[in-house]
Amino acid sequence: MGFKLLSKLLVYLTASIMAIASPLAFSVDSSGEYPTVSEIPVGEVRLYQIADGVWSHIATQSFDGAVYPSNGLIVRDGDELLLIDTAWGAKNTAALLAEIEKQIGLPVTRAVSTHFHDDRVGGVDVLRAAGVATYASPSTRRLAEVEGNEIPTHSLEGLSSSGDAVRFGPVELFYPGAAHSTDNLIVYVPSASVLYGGCAIYELSRTSAGNVADADLAEWPTSIERIQQHYPEAQFVIPGHGLPGGLDLLKHTTNVVKAHTNRSVVE
């Protein structure tokens, strides 16, 4: 069995187990497998329904001669939608809004960016022009300005110390501490036991640490421990890039980060 097929099978099995364990909360999309990078042309966006009122959005972007996937989250909030992270750029984010209108038909009224990198804030200006209120932590807003990236308009308070959590509509926002970046936030959907790890969490097929220019490698494993301790009931975990899975993604990420750190020390 090929690795790609095995990865998709694991996603399907995880979703099936969740649907059985929580039949009222989960209505997993039966329309197909989780979209992969090879299936999404740059400039297009796919939506994948995880649970009743919960979707991931998947886009792709060219970077350094390669094409990478990027995940975000959409959560229903009454007759409105909360968006977590842009679709990595203005063109993708405009396509995301169009796809949401086509498939869901509810307005996106608020959006949260989970850290300051372009795959999370690139497209904020498109959201703002569409009347979406954009939010991020003060740290993310400051770092985005320093980096020359787009800056969300509103500040999220109460997320300055490791372990801080605040309720934001249908989700809980959690600051686990520094990891992929010093400002990275985690998003949890309690009604569906869905954990969105953003770039602080890796997919299972990833074996290298990737972009760690703004990471705190020493603190990252401790931050992941905080996530595990705060959300032990999480059933569906979405990484910032690639295929979702279960809580095993947290341990896998820790292993990859520690291996990278150990290699760096040896070198």
Rank of each mutant, 00 (worst) to 15 (best):
R128D: 03
H154L: 08
S264W: 15
F174G: 13
D52A: 06
Y188N: 12
P239W: 06
M18H: 15
S56A: 04
K102Q: 12
A94E: 13
G242L: 04
V212D: 09
W55Y: 04
S160F: 06
Q235M: 05
L97C: 06
V265D: 08
A15Y: 15
D85W: 00
T134F: 10
M18W: 07
I201H: 13
D85L: 00
V265C: 08
Q229F: 11
P23W: 02
I58M: 11
T253G: 08
L96G: 07
D85P: 00
V124S: 14
R46T: 13
V11G: 07
P232K: 15
G198P: 11
T36V: 06
L9C: 04
A209L: 06
S38C: 10
A259D: 15
T134P: 08
F168V: 09
R142N: 12
Q49M: 03
V237T: 13
I224A: 14
H260V: 06
E99G: 12
P239R: 04
V42K: 10
E33M: 04
V37N: 03
G32M: 00
P69T: 08
P107W: 05
P23I: 11
N71P: 01
H57Q: 10
R142I: 02
G148W: 05
V166R: 09
P232F: 15
S264L: 10
R46P: 12
S208F: 14
V54N: 15
V187C: 15
A15T: 02
I40K: 05
S22P: 03
T86H: 00
S137F: 05
A218C: 07
G163T: 11
R141T: 02
D216W: 07
A95W: 10
I17P: 12
L24C: 11
G245P: 04
P41D: 06
S161Q: 03
W55Q: 05
Y202C: 08
G148S: 01
S7N: 01
Y231W: 05
L127W: 14
D164T: 13
V189T: 09
Y12F: 04
Y202F: 00
A94S: 10
R46L: 05
R110S: 11
G245N: 05
Q235N: 13
V42L: 03
K8L: 07
F174N: 02
W55P: 01
G89C: 08
N92G: 13
S31L: 11
L204G: 11
E39N: 15
L143M: 02
V75S: 06
L24Q: 15
G197R: 01
S223D: 08
N92D: 09
I74Q: 03
E233G: 05
N184R: 01
A234V: 12
T109M: 05
D77A: 02
S139N: 00
F3D: 09
E145C: 11
L97D: 00
S160N: 14
A25P: 13
S139P: 15
G198Q: 05
E219F: 01
G169V: 10
L195F: 01
S193A: 11
R167F: 07
F3W: 10
Q103S: 13
A94V: 12
L73Y: 01
S139H: 01
N184D: 07
S139K: 10
I151A: 04
I224W: 07
L96I: 15
N71W: 11
F174D: 07
V75N: 14
D52K: 07
V75P: 01
A19K: 00
A66W: 05
L10I: 06
A218Q: 08
T60Y: 00
P23Y: 06
L156E: 01
V257L: 15
E203R: 12
D77F: 04
I17M: 06
S181I: 02
V257S: 06
L250H: 04
L173W: 11
A59D: 11
D214S: 08
A200E: 11
G122D: 00
G210C: 10
Y68Q: 03
V126P: 14
E225M: 14
T93C: 06
Y135P: 00
G163D: 09
